[in-house]
Design a protein around this nucleic acid. Structure first.
Lengths: 176, 176
DNA sequence: GCAACGTAGATGACGCGTCATTTATTTCCA
DNA sequence: TGGAAATAAATGACGCGTCATCTACGTTGC
């Protein structure tokens, strides 16, 4: 993913969007962010894959399951927790089931639904993967940041998240 | 991707990694960052896809090509600029070529190599896509951030990037 | 009681990204 | 000069994520 940096002519005229170009500062910041996030994600991915055969997505699912007393959740609960698209979750659970990390259990109260249950293998996998993963997160993300910077980062992230949430439900914008 | 939040037992003992757990603040910050980046990437992806049929990856490649006087680059130059894995770039260029966004041209100076050339269709695609893309970046990322916050964000990103770079070349020194 | 609608979840097709491997060419040097 | 090593790039296999669509069960209201 890259940024909206002067793609050719310094055009204007958008399809209802605000099309002010990014200025030099914004452009540098955006590019730095994009590159950072791409490379950080790749590094996390690589480490997890190599050390434990899990993907970041697997890790996330397993974290939520182990965070749950009974280690079992309805898919829609998981979906809510992860904020993933429904079909992504469904596909992913299928793959994890195939690899024995989770199991599917029918739900008696609701004939449409199911439970995702953590298997012993799944528990072992995340237990084994966690320390190394934390280490990498620390090494690349937290080390060298002060408490204030960490706090600020959380605030900025949250602010963007709010915008995204509001946009999803949000104003039908641009009646132009 | 999710975070290293207490996945079961508060283990320690890593394979050479630092395995200190994340404290509550760090955990919140990390989770917020992860969720933000995932959803922001998804939003950018969706917008580009819907409005212009481009992926963020396409966009990036096209930006770099249009930033180049002759609108043609050697794949390895593109790779350097994008910091992508070689095979990712190769696959991606194949797909873009199939869709007529770029063309391949043999390289006379180096029989192994080639040039990636922007096509007219490619130029039109990014010209059409850019305003809307910038709009979304602005709406979700920059609006509501002050100049200082933008600057800070760039600094934090850059700092993480430096770590990633140093890790790639690694403790085993860079011979240059 | 049943039609209309809503909700839980699965599936197929397709583009993307990674690792491992392969092919072709150039460079280096003994 | 000839062979080893390095470099440019492509490819196959495979897991991931998205959209569109589908199935099946539940809920509501007449």
């Amino acid at each position: 993913m890259d940024g909206p940096s002067r793609p050719g002519p310094s055009d204007r005229a958008a399809s209802g969007h605000d099309a002010r170009w990014l200025d030099a500062d914004e452009q540098r910041a955006w590019r730095a962010y994009l590159r950072m996030q791409g490379r950080l994600a790749a590094a996390l991915n690589r480490q997890l894959q190599l050390e434990s055969g899990l993907s970041p997505a697997d890790y996330e699912v397993l974290v939520h399951l182990t965070d749950t007393p009974e280690a079992r959740l309805r898919p829609y609960e998981l979906q809510w927790a992860l904020q993933w698209e429904q079909s992504r979750l469904s596909h992913h659970l299928t793959r994890m089931r195939r690899r024995g990390l989770v199991e599917r259990e029918e739900c008696s109260e609701d004939g449409r639904g199911a439970f995702v249950v953590l298997t012993e293998k799944g528990r072992q996998a995340i237990t084994a993967a966690a320390p190394g993963h934390v280490g990498v997160v620390r090494r690349f993300f937290f080390d060298g940041f002060s408490r204030e910077e960490v706090a600020l980062l959380e605030r900025l992230s949250t602010r963007i998240l709010d915008r995204l949430d509001n946009a999803d439900a949000g104003p039908e914008a641009d009646p132009r």
